[in-house]
Nucleic acid binder design. Structure first.
Lengths: 153, 153
DNA sequence: TCAAATTCATTCGTATGCAAATGATATCAA
DNA sequence: TTGATATCATTTGCATACGAATGAATTTGA
């Protein structure tokens, strides 16, 4: 093989570019689609609440009173996003806000009685949503998938 | 065991409700966080384009001229969403629009020369983004994960 | 053929999601 | 103590994302 041939071969080997990039095989693209599908399943079961709204209620049910930002960090929302979510839940009477006695910066968030009822009513449905989202996988695959997905989150 | 005891035990067994629902273990919640992490990695590598915008460019590079809605279905965007994405790419000179000669409903989308250059330049970076997103997994785990994730998307 | 149904695109309204800037309050450190 | 930092919350601006309504153009089917 001549020096020129070697060079050509190297150039070929160094050039996977463009031609073999398939968007539909990229993890980000598929992750986005899987998320879309989940949101769609969620909406089919719970029409009057979004996944982020339900996440806020469920977490409040777990931990009780917290500040708005603290709640946000528990459910992976930045300050601006959680504010919008909490505002809408408040407008619907599912949470109530109060000021922290000591630290005047903090805005405390609590479930209302109606909010507690909603969570209790919705949790069984949320379990169905999880199951339907994972339905394409066998039980064994679910265990593997959840373990790996958690590593990426 | 008395009949009463049996009844109590059954009631307990039938009541997983609320108490064992952990938001942070639900597939939808983790899917949302994994997607957030990916978007953040994307933004760190490609500051001037969003993942949906890049998806549109990469797919146009693949398939060439298509109608706006057709492109949307190829990259999993509804008509309203894809319109916004294409409008912004057009404003930046990365795509150009034209009317379909025969079917006057259709709006054809094409990469501009600048758009083609951008895709060529960005595809290697996009490959890095995929790799970094999957970095927490071993090669074997990546293969398994992608197979299962595809089933859910 | 022609009325009904479908497709393509647009617009409106609502809801995340995040960066950046701002203001109020609290904490830290020299 | 007080000046520098840090934290909590809000606001603005921009970008998906999608349901629903609308209008234009095409296709279907009786």
């Amino acid at each position: 093989m001549s020096a020129e041939d070697v060079k050509l071969k190297l150039v070929e080997a160094e050039e996977p570019d463009e031609n073999d990039y398939r968007l539909q095989d990229q993890v980000g693209f598929i992750l986005r689609k899987a998320h879309q599908r989940h949101v769609s399943i969620f909406a089919a079961h719970i029409a009057d609440l979004t996944p982020p709204q339900f996440a806020a209620l469920a977490k409040l049910h777990d931990v009780g009173e917290t500040s708005q930002n603290q709640l946000g960090s528990l459910i992976a929302m930045d300050a601006a996003t959680v504010k919008g979510v909490i505002d809408r839940l408040k407008a619907r009477g599912l949470v109530e806000l109060s000021k922290h006695e000591v630290d005047k910066r903090r805005l405390l968030v609590n479930l209302t009685a109606e909010g507690r009822d909603a969570v209790a009513r919705l949790i069984p449905i949320a379990r169905d949503i999880t199951q339907e989202t994972l339905a394409p996988l066998s039980a064994k695959e679910v265990a593997i998938f959840m373990r790996l997905l958690a590593k990426l989150a």
